[in-house]
Amino acid sequence: MNKQGNTYTILYASVMVIIVAALLAVVSVSLKPMQQANIEIDKKKQILSSVNLAPTTQNAVELYSKYITDSYVVDAQGAKVEGADAFTVDVASEVKKANEERQLPVFVAQLDNGDVKYILPMYGAGLWGPIWGYIAVDADGNTIYGSYFAHQGETPGLGAEIENPTFQQQFIGKHLFVEGEMKPVAVMKVGQKPLNGAEYVDAVSGGTITSKGVQDMIENSLLPYNVFLKSIVK
């Protein structure tokens, strides 16, 4: 057969595409369960990180079942939603809905010393792609106990610094409520202060848009928890 002819070329291209497509399909399907398991372990790791535990991939599942004693979904009125699993709620699509329609997952952690922390998930947009995180709040529903931030593709050394513990530790001890009104922690350039009187942390230098994204994410994701957070104060 003439190797430079049209028939050969078309046949070659078709066969190649079919083989490659089949190969990729096989790879994708056969690796899916392992990838799903990894994603779940990773999520448990992230949740645990927000209460300042240091889980590894190996012990994340064990630590999660030890420390996360309860998890449930609430609505914007602070009432529990029956039959919803907090772990499988897709926060990414929830944050796009109006506050009243959202399903708001809450993870309850009980630490070694008996302290109870409420872990709230967040999701937003950075410069290049999505960013997400978890904020752990003390039993007073106000003081931040720990935070965890992650991103998909922010610039290393710049926006990606939100993953850095030094950025995340700034949130510890900040308050979500100022004089009884919910004003989530702002992320400001060094030397600036938020106009609404909220507490604030320093932004990442060189990562202005990512920092702004973190602030928007905190605001958008946490404001619907307003009623819930007020209700947990005994």
Partner: peptide, 8 residues
């Protein structure tokens, strides 16, 4: 895909 499955 392999990295995602074995070296997440």
């Amino acid at each position: 895909q392999v990295l995602k499955a074995f070296a997440y």
